[in-house]
Amino acid sequence: DWEDIVRFLRKLFELGEEVVIGDWHNHHREEIKRLIEWLEKHF
């Protein structure tokens, strides 16, 4: 279910905002944000 995936990604992203998950999070933050925005537009 796409909504569950979007919710999971958003939760992960919000957690990442508070607890910076090292370089991985910083590197992928923009991609995650773009992916969430893309999914919201399409689903």
Rank of each mutant, 00 (worst) to 15 (best):
Val6Arg: 03
Lys33Asp: 05
Leu39Pro: 00
Gly22Asn: 08
Val20His: 10
Ile21Pro: 10
Asn26Thr: 10
Lys41Ile: 09
His27Ala: 11
Ile21Gly: 08
Arg34Asp: 04
His28Phe: 15
Asn26Pro: 13
Glu37Arg: 10
Glu14Asp: 04
Glu14Leu: 05
Leu12Met: 05
Leu15Trp: 08
Leu39Tyr: 04
Leu15His: 03
Leu12Cys: 05
Asp1Gln: 08
His42Arg: 11
Ile21Thr: 14
Ile36Gln: 02
Arg34Asn: 04
Leu9Gly: 00
Ile5Val: 07
Leu39Met: 03
Leu12His: 00
Trp24Ala: 08
Glu37Pro: 01
Glu18Gly: 08
His28Cys: 03
Glu30Val: 05
Val20Asn: 07
Arg29Leu: 14
Arg7Gln: 08
Glu37Ala: 07
Glu37Ile: 09
Asp23Lys: 05
Lys33Asn: 05
His28Tyr: 14
Arg7Cys: 07
Lys11Gln: 11
Phe8Thr: 03
Ile21Cys: 11
Val20Ser: 06
Asp1Asn: 09
Asp4Thr: 11
Phe13Thr: 02
Asp23Ile: 12
Leu39Thr: 01
Phe43Cys: 13
Gly16Pro: 03
Trp2Asn: 01
Arg29Tyr: 14
Ile32Met: 04
Val19Thr: 06
Trp24Asn: 09
Glu18Met: 14
Leu39Asn: 00
Arg10Asp: 14
Gly16Phe: 15
Asp4Ile: 14
Asp23Cys: 09
Leu35Pro: 00
Leu12Gly: 00
Leu9Gln: 00
Val20Ala: 08
Val6Cys: 08
Lys33Thr: 09
Phe8Trp: 13
His25Gln: 12
Asn26Ile: 06
Glu14Lys: 11
Ile5Asp: 00
Lys11Met: 13
Lys41His: 12
Trp2Val: 01
Glu17Pro: 12
Glu40Pro: 01
His27Asn: 08
Gly16Ile: 15
Glu30Lys: 11
Gly16Met: 15
Ile36Gly: 02
His25Lys: 05
His42Asn: 07
Trp2His: 01
Asp4Val: 13
Phe8Ile: 13
Gly22Cys: 11
Glu31Pro: 03
His25Ala: 10
His42Val: 12
Glu3His: 10
Glu40Tyr: 13
Ile32Asn: 01
Ile36Pro: 00
Trp38Glu: 05
Glu31Tyr: 13
Leu12Val: 03
Phe13His: 01
Lys41Trp: 12
Glu30Gln: 08
Ile36Trp: 11
Glu40Thr: 13
Val6Gln: 03
His25Asn: 12
Leu15Ile: 07
Leu39Trp: 08
Leu15Ser: 04
Phe43Leu: 09
Trp2Phe: 08
Trp24Lys: 09
Trp2Met: 01
Val19Phe: 04
Leu35Asp: 00
Phe8Ala: 11
Lys11Cys: 07
Lys11Arg: 11
His25Met: 15
Arg29Val: 09
Gly22Phe: 02
Ile21Glu: 11
Glu31Leu: 14
Arg34Tyr: 08
Asn26Lys: 14
Ile32Lys: 01
Asp23Phe: 12
His28Ala: 13
Ile5Met: 07
Leu35His: 01
